[in-house]
Simulated assay, not measured.
Amino acid sequence: MNKTDRLLAIVLELQRYKVVRAEDLAATFETSVRTIYRDIQALSEAGVSIIGAPGQGYSLMEGYFLPPVSFTVEEAVTLLIGTEFVEQWFDTRYGGKSRTSRGKIEAILPETVRSEASRIRKSFRFIASAKDAARIQERAYVEVIRRAILEERKIRFRYSKSIAETNGNRQSIRTVAPYGLVIVQGAWVLIGWCELRQSIRHFRLSRMMELIDLEDRFEKPKTFLLDEYQPPDDRNVRVKVLVQSDIADKVKESSNFYTETMEEHADGLHVTFRVRQPEELLHWVLGLGGGAVVLEPESFRHRVKMELEKMLKRY
């Protein structure tokens, strides 16, 4: 980033936040604090009303506002593609807002930029596959959960786990204080405080049923910041699977959530997974048929063998 672009970006950061430290600006723009000091001085000399508070940071004088800025072709394409992503993945309200936003962005672009951006956009396309039909229900849930997060109201739903718990049940009723929504490998996940487990838990929206919002209120802990939240990693069991070369590409493209490494060997593709319980991979391994062999642990090899024997009895 050249100096001119950085100066403009600094003003935008100051306009976006009330107070910004020089250290944070240096980290954002990958430069030194000394360079930020010089940039602030240059902006002040250019007439930008910047106030510096020792030990706190820099801020713009109240009432100062940067005039509308122009977009490069790449910036315009990025914004327009972003609106298409929101339209497909978010709930109907934000989907509608993304369409109107796209129209406003296109309206303010100069003709040359708009034409070039349109030409480049036509080389990208989001295609919804058959499995994405289930996302219609997820989007409806996103809207309910989003409102509950903003209004700090609890929600309740029936949740289906990937494997049965010790009591043999796969489903349970959960009452949750929703803290945030994230997209993990193409799937919406709710992060919130679960009253049943008395801890922060993660819930895939695709496994929710009978979602309702409650009148019960909650107060999100001030210490919880979604941007900084790191879930505890309790996937301590490693499973290694040998995949035959003729279906290796299929496995690579499947993007299994638990995949840790993939290595090409003479006998095929060695895939290592990290899971809480090997059974989390049982259906995945069985779905590959004779194209996959569990190498370790031995206990999981035996579990797959038992399942195959059960299947043979059915035939």
Rank of each mutant, 00 (worst) to 15 (best):
L190N: 12
I247A: 02
L190K: 10
S245W: 07
R204D: 04
P231A: 08
M209C: 06
S206Q: 11
D246T: 06
L196M: 13
K250H: 07
S245V: 01
K220C: 08
E210H: 15
R235N: 09
R204N: 09
K250Y: 15
D213M: 15
D246R: 10
K252V: 07
T223V: 03
I191W: 10
K240G: 00
A187T: 09
F203L: 05
T223Q: 05
Q185H: 14
M208E: 02
D234H: 13
C194F: 04
D213L: 07
D249F: 03
F218M: 06
R197C: 04
Q230T: 13
V251M: 11
D216I: 11
Q185N: 15
V243H: 05
F203H: 07
Q230L: 13
K220L: 14
F218W: 09
H202P: 00
S255V: 13
E195W: 00
T261R: 07
D233K: 09
I247R: 11
V241T: 04
K222E: 12
E210M: 12
R235H: 10
D213Q: 15
Q198L: 09
K250W: 09
R197Y: 14
S255G: 03
I191R: 09
E195A: 07
D249I: 01
Y229L: 00
I200W: 08
L214W: 01
V237S: 12
R235S: 06
A248C: 05
K220D: 02
A187R: 15
E215P: 00
E215W: 08
L242F: 03
Y258L: 09
M208D: 04
Q244E: 14
W188C: 05
E215K: 13
P232T: 10
Y258D: 02
D216N: 10
Y258G: 01
R207Y: 02
K222C: 01
L205G: 11
S245I: 02
V184R: 14
L226H: 03
E195N: 06
P231G: 10
E253Y: 03
